[in-house]
Design a protein around this nucleic acid. Structure first.
Length: 1087
RNA sequence: GCGGGCGUGGCGAAAUUGGUAGACGCGCUAGACUUAGGAUCUAGUGCCGUGAGGCGUGGGGGUUCGAGUCCCUCCGCCCGCACCA
């Protein structure tokens, strides 16, 4: 009886479909297991043999887990919003929904042919309104949330509003944009618009003006990970920097949790490392370097209470703000302030009593944080600061003066009393305070009007200092210059008039140079001197300030303290421009290069001298903090994720604008469906395609958002939707998500390491904070299947002619390689006829053959239509059947490894399956005997059971297939056709080759699908032997084998071996030095 | 440059804990059956050598009775990040 795979496979695929064999229920007596594949984007090209690799592996595992008695959830769907359908729409005018529908249909047909055990009743499509309704709903939840650093989780925006109404934002510790300080009274006084603008600074989904990767070629903004080497990932168009008002996701709020969470999940080290790098945590310090030779500030002259007549821009930059966007720093200060509040000095205690009891009607705060200082007592409405100094302040006189100076600059009045004054002369102190209060103007109104918008608040450090971030504060004595990024806002302000032309020209050039150019010019050293200096905080030396493009505006503060002896880039710069290099680590040879190691003892570094680097870092931070010029800080490379795309084929935002401020629609108004447009291109005025829709709006009378969401929106939560795919009332029900929980096993490509796999973790953590799920990682275990590559073929054309030469002769001519479709190639030989028929360009081709043959060369590349190296699974299935395809893909090599597709080897697997079939059949019919199996047959079976179980569990499917081959070879040798062997074997192979297994199972007399049979139990007893063939080795070299009983001890084995004839031959009469016996393994004789 | 991974026959690869290197498959060689074979079956197949034997897991060194596996060092390839202070 022949193995008719075509008939068998069609039969069982129809059966599974009709009987919904793989339908999963949301409750069961069995334990649950959730196996997920990354869902595909349904492209027009269909599946190639590389796509199903991961699906086959996950399907084997799913089927295995069903046999092991689990309730398995194994769904599939489509990530069906995306660029290609839209690009196609631009070219042809066909609606992306139609293209997508067609492609999905084709995908489904191809998937069905491979025989996957998906529960198709749970299919999701991100582009379906019933799905993206909930993507929009999730966006709303993010909009209506903020990140509270105190509770270290996201909270509803209402809790923030309550806090604002209670005390303003001074005590709020949030991850947010820089926002000027306001009190509860201020908040109450703000109008709706102002309040909404402030809230926008805190929301997890927020609108702001950001520098984006603008891709004119695609007409849209791209995320960082969609930009590869300065060009777009899709299409390879150039990308430029542009300031645009965009939605962003505050993923940075989760930076630390995303980092820490990696330790809890079983993902590959390579992938975790990629995420760690992407998050890019670095510890160090943020330090202020004060500018030298500042012109005197007007406010200093008059002493008390004068406000400078500075212009609006200056006002902006001199307004002190609470650095709530530097949460660590702020938190540290707040903690310190709290501690000080709890441990007041005598004087402070008395002063607080005075101020609290005083009937002047002014509200004072104690130990209040202002910018980077903690003021003892502050009256905000009068901007009056009262400081009480103990004796220690005599030692810090200089520092106190610097601090007072700065506070005055910001418009504060500082009154300073000594401890004794307060203790012995309280009434005198009080009257001084009253006098000051009455002479000061009320600044409340000034405050609300003076700062135009909370969005435009400047850096708190104003013009007086330049803030830098460094991971090596210990090297501060090696600082010989400072560098600003060309985009740094202070460049223009600080540059001296004689240099302004040069510097601004340089900065403009650097800014306009594309990302790509900047990248390819990595090695080029360039820069310009501003003519300005900062003063070194410890040595007091003048430090020149330069501008250079090797400092990035987007990281840290956009400015660095340059330590040429400790940083190679600084060293290059210093050498190029002839700047001093001071070694600060003992033993550094700074002649040739910088010493970037974090080892050694500090020299030339005042109080740090003699310390090891780690200790020096600690002490340096302490000193910097003590001086009030900086603070220990952790920086992350991770940026907030831009969430707007200027495209048509994506989720519309559930948003409308009132007075320029975004508002969310009601849940009942969702989904906002995509409107029809005449063309899928931007409008003439450069607005996104949605702006073309006639009279389209999300809310009557208001402007909608014309952007759509990025591709990762829908894919960041689809794993939850599968749990409850048809729920119309919720994105997922609590019961469903509590039942299925985390994905137990997730299969997908490593190319999503810093995209999808980061975002899905981010959203999951957010859902956890909101209480929607009770886990904070989406997937416990992740397997990255390797890519199956294509083997491209090339022929060679003689330049300037239509003549092609055999690859063996290509060096004899001036030739250009030409890709040829691999279907024209058999082995190394080109089929000339097929090649000529390829198209008009090749019709008249001439050939220079080598011995009558036209050879080609091969190259392993990504499998892609454009490289003419695609192998379609349909063709393979047509020829060999899908059970062969499935097993062959697994047999190709380790799952996680990239490997080229090579169709040659498939014959071996096909032969194996036919051999397998033959075990169960005779020439004419199905033929299985009910005789008792022999010991040898049972041994083969149980050896295989053990091996297959182990191999599946450690995802070693290639060795699993080989174990089946060995098993079948051995059973064939034994002429075994016993039911007792073949029945369990059939179950064993069913995850790999389900169709043939189902057919044989039925022939064996079963009426139920094999999918829910029981995985055979391994019994050790069948493998037990009473002797073992020991390899006998001399000095580690194996010479021969010796059958030795297993029930004797080591000494007896040794005796048996030494006395053996063959051993004597090798000993040549000498006595062995030592004999090592490893039971059940080896005997080694040392001669 | 930094981080991760890898390097084993003609090819894809095995060797799970330091214990017989090359399982299994492709390819190749010879043979059988045969009108024929690109079907099937049998035998062989790491390299050198007629043989005994020797050599062999990128190179060099080390630890060990014993190393593909552990350590040091160098070389090569792949992937990711890339002026991240």
């Amino acid at each position: 009886m022949d193995y008719n795979f075509a008939e068998i496979e069609a039969k069982w695929q129809a059966y599974w479909n009709k009987n919904k064999t793989f339908k999963a229920e949301n409750k069961s007596d069995k334990p649950k297991y959730y196996i997920l594949d990354m869902f595909p984007y349904p492209s027009g090209a269909g599946l190639h043999v590389g796509h199903p690799l991961g699906y086959i592996a996950s399907d084997i595992y799913s089927r295995y887990m069903r046999l092991k008695g689990y309730n398995v959830l194994h769904p599939m769907g489509y990530d069906s919003f995306g660029l290609p359908a839209e690009q196609y729409a631009i070219q042809t005018g066909q609606h992306p929904a139609i293209t997508t529908e067609t492609n999905i249909k084709r995908y489904r047909e191809q998937l069905d042919k491979i025989g996957f055990s998906f529960d198709w009743d749970r299919e999701v499509r991100t582009s379906d309104p019933s799905y993206y309704k909930w993507t929009q709903w999730i966006f709303k939840q993010l909009f209506n949330s903020w990140y509270n650093k105190k509770s270290d989780k996201a909270e509803k925006i209402e809790t923030l509003i309550t806090e604002f109404e209670r005390v303003g934002n001074s005590e709020v510790d949030a991850v947010c944009e820089e926002t000027p300080a306001f009190t509860a009274e201020d908040w109450e006084g703000y109008d709706e618009k102002r309040q909404q603008e402030i809230l926008l600074n805190y929301r997890l989904a927020y609108l702001s003006d950001v520098m984006v990767n603008w891709c004119p070629g695609l007409g849209t903004v791209l995320a960082n990970e969609e930009v590869i080497n300065g060009v777009s990932e899709r299409g390879g168009y150039p990308v430029e920097r542009k300031l645009m008002r965009q939605w962003s996701m505050r993923i940075t709020a989760y930076a630390e949790r995303l980092l820490q969470g990696l330790d809890k999940i079983d993902w590959s080290d390579a992938l975790k490392e990629m995420q760690r790098n992407w998050i890019g945590k670095s510890r160090g310090a943020e330090v202020d370097f004060y500018l030298k030779d500042l012109p005197p500030t007007p406010s200093q002259g008059g002493g008390v209470g004068q406000h400078s007549d500075t212009s609006e821009t200056q006002e902006k930059s001199t307004t002190p703000s609470y650095h709530t966007s530097s949460p660590e720093k702020y938190k540290l200060l707040i903690d310190k302030a709290l501690e000080m509040r709890q441990n007041p000095t005598e004087g402070e205690k008395l002063m607080w009593e005075l101020l609290r009891r005083d009937a002047s009607g002014y509200h004072f705060r104690r130990q209040h944080v202002i910018d980077r200082f903690i003021a003892d007592f502050v009256c905000l409405s009068k901007q009056l600061i009262i400081e009480v100094d103990g004796d220690i302040h005599d030692l810090q006189k200089e520092e106190d003066e610097g601090r007072t100076h700065e506070l005055i600059k910001w418009g504060y009045t500082v009154l300073r009393f000594r401890n004794e004054e307060v203790t012995y002369n309280p009434s005198d102190v009080l009257s001084k305070i009253r006098k000051a209060l009455s002479s000061l103007p009320d600044v409340k109104d000034n405050n609300t009007q003076g700062t135009p918008s909370p969005l435009s608040s400047g850096e708190g450090s104003g013009e007086r200092s330049i803030k830098v971030f460094t991971t090596r504060p210990d090297t501060i004595f090696g600082v010989t210059f400072m560098v600003l990024a060309p985009e740094h806002e202070l460049v223009e302000k600080i540059t001296t008039p004689d240099r302004i032309d040069e510097v601004m020209t340089y900065a403009e050039e650097a800014k306009n140079r594309s990302e790509r150019e900047r990248m390819t010019e990595v090695k080029r050293v360039s820069g310009a001197f501003t003519g300005a200096y900062v003063t070194h905080p410890f040595t007091g030396e003048d430090i020149p300030i330069w501008v250079s493009d090797y400092v990035l505006a987007g990281y840290g503060t956009g400015a660095i303290m340059a330590v040429p002896s400790g940083d190679q880039r600084d060293w290059n710069f210093a050498n190029h421009f002839g700047i001093d290099i001071i070694p600060v680590i003992d033993g550094s040879d700074i002649e040739k290069e910088a010493n970037e190691t974090k080892e050694g003892i500090l020299i030339n570094s005042d109080f740090l001298n003699g310390l090891q680097v780690p200790d020096a870092i600690k002490l340096a931070i302490e000193k910097i903090e003590g001086k009030g010029i900086g603070i220990g800080k952790t920086n992350y490379r991770l940026r907030d994720a831009i969430f707007s795309r200027q495209r048509y084929w994506g989720e519309p935002f559930p948003v409308y604008y009132k007075d320029g401020v975004p508002y969310m629609l009601e849940d009942s108004e969702l989904p906002v469906t995509l409107p029809e447009v005449d063309k899928y291109l931007p409008t003439e005025t450069g607005e996104p395609p949605l702006a073309r829709a006639e009279n389209w709006t999300t809310k009557e009378g208001y402007q909608p958002d014309y952007n759509t969401m990025p591709g990762w929106a829908g894919s960041s939560w689809y794993y939850l939707r599968y749990m409850d795919a048809n729920n119309e009332g919720e994105f997922v029900s609590k019961e469903a998500v509590d039942y299925w929980g985390q994905v137990d096993l997730y299969f997908g490509g490593a190319e999503h390491a810093t995209g999808h796999l980061l975002y899905v973790r981010f959203w999951t953590m957010f859902f956890k904070d909101m209480g929607y799920v009770n886990f904070d990682e989406p997937a416990k275990k992740l397997i990255n299947q390797g890519m199956i590559q294509g083997v491209s073929s090339f022929t060679y054309r003689i330049n300037g002619t239509k003549k092609y030469v055999s690859a063996s002769l290509k060096n004899e001519f001036e030739t250009t390689p030409v890709r040829v479709d691999i279907s024209f190639v058999e082995g190394d030989e080109l089929d000339i006829k097929k090649f000529k028929n390829w198209g008009p360009d090749y019709k008249d081709a001439e050939f220079e053959l080598d011995n009558g043959k036209m050879f080609v060369t091969h190259e392993v590349e990504k499998m892609s239509k454009s490289k003419y190296n695609v192998v379609n699974p349909d063709e393979i299935i047509e020829q060999y059947g899908t059970d062969t395809l499935r097993m062959y893909e697994m047999f190709l090599g380790p799952l996680e490894q990239a490997k080229p597709w090579d169709t040659k080897g498939i014959e071996g697997v096909y032969r194996f399956l036919r051999k397998f079939w033959k075990l169960y059949t005779s020439k004419e019919a199905f033929d299985v005997s009910n005789d008792e199996p022999t010991k040898a047959e049972l041994k083969v079976l149980h050896k295989t059971i053990k091996k297959i179980k182990d191999d599946i569990e450690r995802m070693s499917f290639n060795t699993g297939v080989s174990a089946f081959m060995i098993c079948v070879n051995e059973l064939a040798d034994l002429n075994c056709n016993k039911r007792a062997i073949l029945e369990p074997l059939c179950v064993l192979i069913s995850p790999f080759a389900p169709h043939i297994a189902e057919e044989l199972w039925q022939q064996l007399g079963y009426t139920e699908s094999i999918s829910y049979a029981e995985f055979p139990e391994f019994k050790e007893e069948y493998l037990v032997e009473d002797s073992f063939s020991y390899p006998i080795s001399f000095n580690g070299k194996t010479r021969f084998n010796m059958e030795i009983p297993l029930n004797i001890d080591k000494a007896e084995v040794e005796k048996l071996v030494i006395e053996a004839e063959q051993v004597k031959k090798y000993l040549e009469g000498k006595a062995p030095k030592k004999v090592i016996v490893v039971p059940n393994r080896i005997v080694n004789i040392v001669v």
